Simulated scan of single mutants.
Amino acid sequence: MEFRHFRYILKIAEEGTLSRAAKALYVSQPSLSQLLAAQEKKIGAPLFDRGTRLTPTAVGRRYLEMARSIIALDESFHQQVDDIVRGAAGDVTVGLTQFRSTHLLAPMLPAFRAKYPKITLHLREDTTERLEEMAAAGEMDCMISLLPIDERRFDYDILFEERLLLALPPAHPVCTALGLVPGDRTSLPRVPLAALRETPFLLMHREQKLHDMLLTLCEDEGFVPEIALETRSMNTAHALAGAGLGTAVLPETLIAAAPPAHPPCYAAIEGDPCRMIVLARAKKRYLPRAVSIFREELRTFCSDIQKEQKPL
C-alpha cells in the first residue's frame, strides 16, 4: 500500500467531502473517488459512511489510526536521517494561537533565525483546543499551549507563568471606589470576583481555555456570570472593556503588550489566578534535532524574560 493512499484518505477524513479533499490535494474528484473505492474493495469494508459529510466507519477509524502511525514512523525515519546528515538544519512546525505568535514568537524569531539560518519554522495558528487535536494527530512537531493538558497524549515543558487581571469599564463602581485610572497598571488592588456578580462579563470562545477558566473562577465564588458578549479575540475583549461593554479577565501579557486606544481600568483578582504556558508535543513522537534546538532556545528566551520580570 502506498503512502500516497494513506495521505489521500486522511485528507478525505479531514475535509469531510470528496470535493473539498480533491481540491486540497490538487487532484480530480473522480480519481480520488476511484482511489477510495479501490482501497475499500481491497480492505473488504467501507471506510466512510456516505452522508452529507463523509464520516469514518469503525473500520475507517482503525484505518485512519494506523495510517497516522505509519506516516509518523516514516517521517521519524527521515528526520533521524536528516539529523545525522544535516546537523542543525531542518523544518519545525509549531502550533500556537495568534496571540502567542504576535507577542511571544515575534520578539524571539529574529535572533533565532540569525543563529540557525538553516532551520525553517512553519507556524500553525488556531485555538488551543484545535491545536491539541492537530498535535495529537501528528500534524505538528510541538505547540505552545496551556495547562491543564491531557498528559496521556502529551509531554510538555513549562515555559512561564502568566497572571490574569481584570479589565474593568472605567465607569464601573469598583473603579470609582478604588480610584482606578484607565490604563494605569502601577497599582493593582485585589478585587474579589464575588464583588462583580452583578457585572456583565466578556467571555472568550469555548474552544479557548480562558472560557472555562473564567466560568470556573466565578463558580468558585458562588455565582454564574452574566455574559454580555462572547468573542474569539482577546484584543477585542480588551477594547470592549475599555468601551464600557463589560468586564474581561485577560492575561497580563496581552494587557502589557497591546493597550487599546481607550483602555479600561485594571485590577488584580483576589487569589492571583495564573495560567501556566507550556511547550507540548505528542507522546512517543521522535524529537528531531531542529525541534530540540527550537525547544531549548524558546525555553531560554522565556527564562531570560522572566528574570527581567517582564510579562511575556
Rank of each mutant, 00 (worst) to 15 (best):
G179T: 05
R124P: 01
A167K: 00
A89N: 06
L121M: 05
R100M: 12
S76F: 08
H172F: 06
Q98S: 12
A167E: 05
G95M: 00
P170S: 00
D157P: 06
L146V: 07
L168T: 02
A88N: 12
P148N: 06
D82E: 12
G95N: 01
T128G: 11
T120P: 02
T93V: 15
P107F: 04
I149D: 06
F112S: 10
Y156T: 08
I158D: 14
D83W: 03
V174A: 15
F154I: 06
D126G: 13
F99K: 02
E162S: 15
S101E: 08
P169C: 05
A167Y: 04
L178G: 07
I119E: 03
G87V: 10
D83C: 00
P169W: 07
E125I: 12
L131D: 06
G95C: 00
S76K: 07
P110H: 04
A194L: 14
P148K: 05
T102K: 12
L73V: 09
H172S: 03
R86M: 15
S76N: 06
P107H: 05
L180N: 04
R113Q: 14
P107A: 00
V191I: 15
A137P: 10
P148S: 06
M134C: 10
D83R: 01
P182T: 02
D74V: 02
E139H: 01
F77M: 11
T93Y: 02
V174D: 09
R86E: 12
I158E: 15
A89Y: 09
T102Q: 13
E151W: 08
I158C: 14
T186A: 14
Y116D: 03
V191E: 05
L188W: 00
L131V: 11
H172P: 04
M143H: 03
R130P: 01
I71P: 00
D91I: 10
I84P: 04
L168M: 09
A114M: 08
A194F: 12
R113A: 13
L164I: 13
A88F: 13
E75S: 02
E133G: 01
P107L: 02
E129C: 11
S187V: 12
A111Q: 09
E151R: 12
R152H: 13
